[in-house]
């Protein structure tokens, strides 16, 4: 078994990585975080063991890059709602309200929700990424989903 061309990796996981970046750092810095994620992954790629879980690898890098951006971001947080008016490329950021609600979660809940639901990491991987136990990661994700449901169900007639 050998490593596929990196281009295939970008094609397959570019979307997931972008959503993780959106969820953590918002639309403005997400593109830089996406680029830094894939550039750093490309540098390390030839040393990746063939057959590794590439998505988990990328999501872990993306989460850390996006968190770095979030921490070093000196600008004031973008108030909820304003993201709707921000041009995102040539179109609005899809699901802007969802991302606004995610960004308003408590940090542990946000991390668990993003890593597990947006990034598709298993809870053991989420726990490792967040430096917590699997049980705690599971609980944070459940609490986060409950909180999101509360915010969103008000406007969403499912």
């Amino acid at each position: 078994m050998s490593l596929p061309p990196f281009d295939d990796v970008v094609a397959e996981h570019g979307r997931t990585v972008l959503r993780v970046c959106w969820a953590v750092v918002g639309p403005v810095d997400a593109e830089d975080a996406w680029s830094e994620t894939f550039l750093s992954a490309l540098a390390a790629y030839p040393r990746l063991v063939a057959g590794s879980n590439v998505r988990a690898w990328l999501v872990t890098i993306a989460y850390r890059k996006a968190m770095d951006k979030l921490r070093s971001n000196q600008r004031a947080p973008i108030p909820i709602g304003m993201t709707l008016d921000r041009p995102f490329s040539d179109r609005e950021l899809p699901d802007a309200e969802l991302w606004a609600a995610v960004s308003a979660l408590a940090p542990k809940q946000r991390g668990a929700v993003v890593a597990h639901y947006v990034g598709g990491l298993r809870y053991a991987e989420v726990a490792e990424l967040l430096g917590t136990s699997e049980t705690a990661a599971r609980r944070s994700a459940a609490d986060g989903i409950a909180a999101l449901r509360k915010v969103i169900s008000g406007e969403d007639s499912m």
Binding site: D95, L98, Y117, V118
Partner: peptide
């Protein structure tokens, strides 16, 4: 659901 929205 919220979960499905997160997955996209």
């Amino acid at each position: 659901t919220v979960e499905e929205m997160l997955v996209g």
